[in-house]
Simulated scan of single mutants.
Amino acid sequence: MRISKLSASKHKKGRILVQLDNGELLRIGEREVVAFSLYVGKELTGEEKNALENAARESGLKDRALGLLTTRPLSRRELTDRLVERADATEEEAEAVADELERLGLLNDRTYAETLVRHYSAKGYGPYRLREELRRRGVPREYWDEVLADLDDPSEAIDTFLRQKLHGRITDRRELKRVSDALARRGYHWTDISAALRRYDASLEEDEI
């Protein structure tokens, strides 16, 4: 089969349309034009055509992955899931793209875990909630303890929360339970919550907390 026409797509930047003399239309990227030395009149064997299509598909998936990563950071699992769900990639294709991006330093679960912990700890989340976010976003468990070990002492964050939610001395057990439950939902350990309540109101008895 012979290439009868090469033209740039009017709808997608960087896409090249390859018209073959048998009526087929191939959609490839600019890099494939160079890599395969394509020109009008060039004869392609069936094997060369398949290789061209596979290379174009791989490039397209890499471009899609880079587009996803420039929107916001992602874990490896999040990226591969999105490629399968939104770009019709196979599991093998998605994993291969992720491997390549990791080699280039553009995808790093350890760095992503650090970013995630910084973001959510700044929002007032405690260790339990942070672990849940790491799990939910597919960060490998091997990184959890490493990044959580760098967390600041939670005392200041809990104290700030109590000052914002309470005004003066605690006199109502329902109010005490409300703020305690809220801190627990944010992922703080009960020992840290209890200690903070005593700092806030030293008159609280053990059985009141």
Rank of each mutant, 00 (worst) to 15 (best):
M1E: 04
R2Q: 12
S4R: 12
H11T: 11
K12L: 14
I16P: 01
D21P: 00
L25R: 10
L26D: 03
R27G: 12
I28P: 01
E30A: 15
E30H: 10
E32F: 08
V34A: 15
A35D: 12
A35H: 05
F36C: 03
S37I: 00
L38M: 02
K42R: 14
K42Q: 13
G46K: 06
G46Q: 12
E48C: 12
E48K: 06
A51C: 05
A51D: 08
L52A: 11
A56V: 06
A56N: 04
E58I: 01
G60Q: 04
G60F: 08
R64Y: 10
R64Q: 06
A65F: 07
A65Q: 01
A65P: 02
G67Y: 02
T71L: 13
P73F: 10
L74C: 11
R76N: 08
V84K: 13
E85Y: 03
E85W: 01
A87T: 00
A89E: 01
A89Q: 00
T90D: 06
E92I: 09
E92N: 07
A94I: 07
E95G: 09
A96W: 00
A98K: 04
A98Q: 04
D99W: 04
L104E: 13
L104D: 06
G105H: 07
G105S: 12
L106W: 01
R110F: 15
T115P: 00
L116C: 09
R118L: 14
Y120L: 05
S121M: 05
S121A: 15
K123N: 07
Y125L: 14
Y125E: 10
G138M: 10
P140K: 05
Y143W: 14
D145N: 14
D145E: 15
D145M: 04
V147N: 08
L148F: 11
A149T: 03
D150L: 14
A157F: 01
I158W: 03
K165S: 14
K165Q: 14
G168P: 10
I170W: 01
D172F: 10
R173L: 11
R173M: 05
K177S: 14
R178Q: 12
R186Q: 11
H189I: 00
D192S: 15
D192Q: 09
I193S: 07
I193A: 13
A195H: 05
A195S: 15
A195T: 08
A195E: 12
R198H: 15
A202H: 09
S203Q: 06
E205S: 15
E205A: 15
D207Q: 07
I209Y: 08
